[in-house]
């Protein structure tokens, strides 16, 4: 498979973490009136490199590194 822009989604990046329990752990208080297991989150997660909250389909980072 070719390395193209299409592959460079945060979802495939080693810095990206969108596991619901990790998201709730990283954002204390999130589960008080919401949930990382809800549909509205739509698999968004935290970029550990830039400390951003990103959709998994976001794709513009030059620090992208393949998730092993």
């Amino acid at each position: 498979m070719a390395v193209t822009r299409a592959n460079h989604h945060c979802l495939n990046c080693k810095y990206f973490n969108n596991e619901p329990d990790r998201v709730e752990e990283a954002l204390p208080g999130l589960s008080v009136l919401s949930s990382a297991y809800s549909s509205v989150r739509a698999e968004a997660g935290i970029c550990g490199r830039h400390d951003l909250f990103l959709a998994p389909w976001a794709e513009q980072c030059r620090d992208f590194q393949v998730r092993k």
Binding site: M1, V3, A6, H8, P56, D63, F64, V66
Partner: peptide, 15 residues
């Protein structure tokens, strides 16, 4: 868009 060596040399899985 893809400038890092790791990025160019490795094949990421399809999203």
């Amino acid at each position: 868009y893809c400038e890092t060596k790791v990025c160019a040399d490795e094949t990421p899985p399809a999203p």
